[in-house]
């Protein structure tokens, strides 16, 4: 039972990251009706930008010393002689990394936003109104463009980046079983869920959120009502790229920075279809389900099976419910 709960916890943590990634795909689909196969590579770029700003730039010689390692007197006093891996030592080292983490996040968000705007303007806008096939394939082409550019700009080696939160093991007891998790994963979970929830609130209560929902409902009516539809498209891509940058930073700090992050995005696409392309709630459910199923599969059947869990799950769900858990059914007229 204890092991079971342990794996459920792991599943929820990875599920929350899946949800954060899926968010970007759903946002773009809702606003522009484009299914972004290259979202994983957008995330890859986010991860590389995070690396560039938080490691390469922070350690650059022209940067003030406090950026690469911030050590005010009170922090040194706080850390004192705390033993390694203790919460206090982890928090102290996190605080001293804080400037570079913030620099990395801000830089990654900004750079990814610019990248997304360029993609939207140069590639997606000319294809508006084309068939779904052309849309899918152009984002597939984008995969190669992004992957190749990443290979040209950054060397394709696994690199370490600072984690978003302090990282120390937390041990606790439940049902007389010892369970543990890393505080870093807990921070990732909170960040992912907070972003997800705040985006829901933005969509519901702000002007631009209402504009996105109206465009999702009916593009031409939205135009007629004076909504700037092209700007809605840009907004959607901005949302996708910025949440993607955060997801990239999380993934890179969790598993190391490598081009494999891009492929991860494809399995998220399966999750999105499972939940329903245009339903945030459905996608959240599907992400949690896939996260938990994968971690169960890892426990019982080994890591190889865990990798194809999303694909098997999406096949089963699509066969039973063609539009996912909560996706809206398309109505075709002849």
């Amino acid at each position: 039972m204890g092991q079971f709960i342990q794996y459920i916890i792991n599943g929820v943590i990875s599920g929350s990251i899946l949800a954060l990634i899926a968010l970007g795909i759903v946002a773009v689909f809702k606003a522009t009706k484009v299914v972004n196969f290259a979202h994983g590579h957008l995330i890859l770029f986010g991860a590389y930008f995070y690396f560039t700003f938080s490691v390469v730039l922070a350690d650059a010689p022209f940067m003030p010393a406090w950026v690469s390692s911030w050590e005010p007197a009170w922090l040194i006093a706080y850390a004192g002689d705390a033993p390694m891996f203790s919460p206090r030592a982890a928090i102290a080292s996190w605080v001293s990394d804080l400037p570079r983490i913030l620099l990395g996040l801000v830089g990654a968000l900004a750079a990814n936003a610019v990248l997304a705007l360029i993609i939207e303007r140069l590639i997606m806008r000319p294809l508006l109104g084309q068939s779904a096939f052309a849309m899918i394939l152009s984002t597939v082409g984008l995969i190669w463009v992004l992957e190749g550019s990443a290979g040209l700009i950054w060397t394709a080696e696994a690199e370490q980046v600072p984690a978003l939160g302090p990282n120390f093991p937390i041990r606790f007891q439940l049902f007389d079983q010892n369970l543990f998790l890393f505080s870093g994963s807990l921070v990732n979970l909170l960040v992912a869920l907070l972003l997800f929830a705040s985006l829901m609130l933005v969509l519901r209560y702000t002007r631009s959120g209402v504009a996105i929902r109206a465009t999702a409902e009916d593009q031409s009516t939205a135009y007629a009502m004076g909504i700037n539809v092209p700007r809605v498209f840009s907004t959607a891509w901005l949302v996708a790229s910025t949440t993607g940058a955060v997801a990239g930073a999380i993934l890179a700090s969790r598993n190391g920075l490598s081009p494999a992050i891009g492929l991860f995005g494809l399995s998220v696409l399966a999750v999105v279809l499972m939940g329903g392309l245009d339903s945030f709630a459905g996608v959240l459910i599907a992400s949690m389900l896939v996260g938990i199923l994968s971690s169960m599969a890892q426990w019982k059947l080994g890591g190889g099976v865990a990798e194809i869990v999303p694909y098997v799950a999406v096949l089963v769900v699509i066969l039973i419910r063609p539009h996912g858990f909560m996706g809206q059914e398309e109505i075709e007229r002849i």
Binding site: L137, W144, V145, S149
Partner: peptide
């Protein structure tokens, strides 16, 4: 190899547009 990837991707997008 990266250039080949970029060229491949651009060919896809170019043909579609």
């Amino acid at each position: 190899s990266p250039t080949r990837d970029i060229l491949f991707g651009l060919m896809i997008i170019g043909f579609l547009i």
